[in-house]
């Protein structure tokens, strides 16, 4: 994270942002990690919609739910809400 900071002659005018937030990882905030059980999952697609961090995606190729651990902060809402109990929160490093 120790990249050279730009000077006033280099940055865009008027405080316009020049990096997408998707280049900023929030995954290392996590203490607990959601682990998804594809067998139990009914593909109801609730979890991608209620995730605060848009870190659960529907993979159209595999027709399955995918977690993006680069952004998942480990809040556990998906596990709490999953109607099929297909998501389990596991302490980081234990799974």
């Amino acid at each position: 994270m120790s990249e050279r900071k730009k000077g006033w002659k280099e940055i865009p005018v008027g405080g316009v942002c020049w990096k997408p937030a998707t280049e900023y990882s929030t995954g290392d905030w996590r203490t607990f990690k959601p682990v998804h059980d594809s067998e139990k999952c009914t593909k109801c697609l609730l979890c991608p919609i209620i995730c605060p961090d848009a870190s659960i995606n529907w993979n159209t190729a595999t027709q399955d739910i995918e977690f993006n651990y680069n952004f998942c902060k480990g809040c556990g809402i998906c596990a709490n809400e999953c109607p099929a109990n297909a998501i389990e929160m596991v302490r980081e490093g234990e799974a």
């Binding site: 998707t22 280049e23 900023y24 996590r30 961090d53 848009a54 870190s55 556990g76 809402i77």
Partner: peptide, 13 residues
């Protein structure tokens, strides 16, 4: 998008 820095479990997000 992802990469915003709201707290984990943020309702407004």
């Amino acid at each position: 998008t992802s990469g915003h820095r709201a707290c984990a479990g943020c309702g407004p997000a």
